[in-house]
């Protein structure tokens, strides 16, 4: 009985555009406070370098978040992959070999996330927690056995080139948009996140699609870990830890519903990642004291939450 006309200002549209508006506000704000330095060629390339890893991984993470569960293992898994990649390339292995090794790790982890949680009826957050400890533990074990911090000595210049970073990022995001919006992978994933029972009764092979979706995240994580090595230059036992929180924050800023489901939007990943990166970058560039950058981020974060995640109106009884 409520024929909601889809006017531009309907609540739904505002919810969809709010993250974009947020990004624009952040850009405009820092354009002023930095006196235009935000757009300097040097800074633009450093924004790309800072956001490439986050954008790629959160694009993959949108798929698993749409399934309705948070992932606590992304950070340690990336750290472990980066460590292995650095070790392989330092020992004269190619970057391709390093990538394959990273992919091996992330894909086997993704199987545990999808298959084990399904078979044992575990909440996926529990398996990701388990994997988080496992990956973190392995990372510590390996790094201490080779003497602590590892310096990436091989030639990573390709991964440091802004145009390469931009191209990879664009390809991943475009592929993500395609898979999420125009294929059964994204459509089923969202449906499963909203109502698993209904998805199952619609004939969707739940476990199959869950596996595919976790593999997408696995691939993105593996790619991301290479950019992490090239950017960090040195890998220790703690590299990557907390990265899953960055992903989560980026997705929230990008308007991703935390419970996943049909209202998930793939565009949350690039929008949120850029908002988050520019926020950090802009604060530093504006000369904000490093000691209060954290509090500034907290402030922005809470404002975004209040605007986007509030109770979406009451359900009308009938």
């Amino acid at each position: 009985m409520t024929a909601t006309k889809n006017s531009v200002f309907s609540r739904k549209n505002i919810q969809t555009f709010l993250p974009v508006i947020g990004l624009v506000i952040v850009i405009v704000l820092f354009a002023f406070t930095t006196g235009g330095k935000l757009f300097s060629a040097y800074n633009l390339s450093s924004i790309i370098a800072q956001s490439v890893c986050l954008t790629i991984v959160s694009t993959g993470a949108v798929f698993t978040y749409a399934l309705g569960s948070l992932d606590l293992s992304i950070g340690p898994t990336m750290g472990l992959c980066a460590l292995i990649a650095a070790l392989i390339t330092n020992n004269n292995g190619s970057i391709l070999l390093a990538f394959l090794a990273a992919l091996g790790i992330t894909i086997s982890f993704s199987f545990i996330n999808s298959v084990v949680s399904y078979a044992l009826h575990l909440d996926r957050i529990l398996t990701t927690l388990f994997l988080s400890f496992t990956a973190g533990g392995l990372q510590l074990m390996i790094s201490s056995s080779v003497g602590g911090t590892i310096y990436a000595m091989a030639d990573w210049s390709l991964f440091k080139s802004t145009s390469f970073q931009f191209i990879v990022m664009a390809v991943v995001v475009l592929l993500g948009i395609f898979l999420f919006n125009f294929t059964t992978i994204g459509k089923y994933g969202r449906a499963m996140g909203s109502n698993r029972v209904c998805a199952g009764q619609s004939g969707i092979n739940i476990i199959k699609y869950q596996i595919i979706i976790y593999i997408i995240l696995a691939i993105c994580t593996a790619i991301g870990s290479l950019f992490l090595v090239s950017r960090a230059g040195s890998i220790s036992w703690s590299t990557g830890s907390g990265f899953h929180m960055d992903v989560m924050i980026a997705l929230i800023l990008g308007g991703m519903p935390m419970r996943g489901g049909v209202n998930s939007r793939i565009i949350s990943a690039p929008i949120g990642s850029f908002t988050y990166t520019i926020l950090s970058n802009g604060l530093t560039l504006s000369g904000v004291n490093m000691s209060i950058v954290g509090m500034c981020k907290a402030l922005v974060f809470i404002v975004v939450i209040i605007l986007t995640c509030r109770n979406k109106g009451r359900v009308i009884p009938r």
Binding site: A191, S194, N195, V197, C198, A199, Q201, G261, V262, N263
Partner: peptide
């Protein structure tokens, strides 16, 4: 509402 349709879907 619980099994046949996704309520928050269109």
């Amino acid at each position: 509402d619980r099994e046949a349709i996704i309520l928050d879907g269109n």
